[in-house]
Simulated assay, not measured.
Amino acid sequence: MYQSDITQFLNQLKEQKPTLEAEQRQGRALLWDKAPTDLDERARQQASKVEQTPYVYYQNF
């Protein structure tokens, strides 16, 4: 059965480092998988937001 070079490389990598997928999942959980915020917390965050000027590099005080 034909396997591309990339598939062969990935299979070899997984054989050499069997913990690779678990490490990738830990990294994803660290950066991306966040617990959802409740509605009260979200409303509080939106209410405390500071209005940003249209052009942030020019502040006309």
Results as ranks from 00 to 15, higher is better:
T7I: 10
Q8F: 14
Q8W: 12
Q8K: 10
F9T: 02
F9S: 09
F9P: 00
F9C: 06
F9L: 13
L10E: 12
L10T: 11
L10G: 14
L10P: 04
N11R: 05
N11T: 02
N11L: 03
Q12L: 13
Q12V: 07
L13N: 13
L13D: 06
L13M: 07
L13F: 05
K14W: 00
K14H: 09
E15T: 13
Q16M: 14
Q16G: 08
Q16N: 09
K17P: 14
K17W: 03
K17A: 04
P18A: 08
P18N: 10
P18I: 05
P18G: 03
T19S: 05
L20K: 05
L20G: 02
L20I: 11
L20F: 07
L20M: 11
E21F: 06
E21A: 08
E21I: 12
E21G: 10
E21V: 07
E23S: 06
E23R: 05
Q24L: 10
Q24Y: 11
Q24T: 02
Q24W: 12
R25F: 03
R25A: 07
R25I: 10
Q26V: 05
G27K: 01
G27M: 09
G27H: 06
R28F: 12
A29T: 02
A29F: 05
A29Q: 01
A29K: 00
L30V: 00
L30M: 00
L31R: 00
L31C: 03
L31K: 01
L31G: 01
L31A: 01
L31I: 03
D33H: 07
D33R: 07
D33K: 12
K34F: 12
K34N: 05
A35W: 01
A35M: 11
A35I: 01
P36D: 12
P36G: 12
P36W: 02
P36K: 14
P36C: 03
P36Q: 06
T37I: 15
T37G: 09
T37M: 03
T37S: 12
T37P: 13
D38C: 09
D38Q: 09
D38A: 09
D38W: 15
D38H: 14
D38E: 03
L39Q: 06
L39F: 06
L39I: 14
L39V: 11
D40K: 04
E41W: 15
E41K: 08
E41H: 15
E41N: 11
E41T: 15
R42V: 13
R44Y: 06
R44P: 15
Q45F: 01
Q46M: 06
Q46S: 01
Q46L: 01
Q46P: 02
A47F: 00
A47Q: 08
A47D: 03
A47M: 02
A47C: 14
S48Q: 08
S48A: 07
K49E: 00
K49G: 00
K49Q: 02
V50G: 01
V50L: 01
V50A: 04
E51M: 08
E51A: 13
Q52C: 04
T53G: 14
T53W: 02
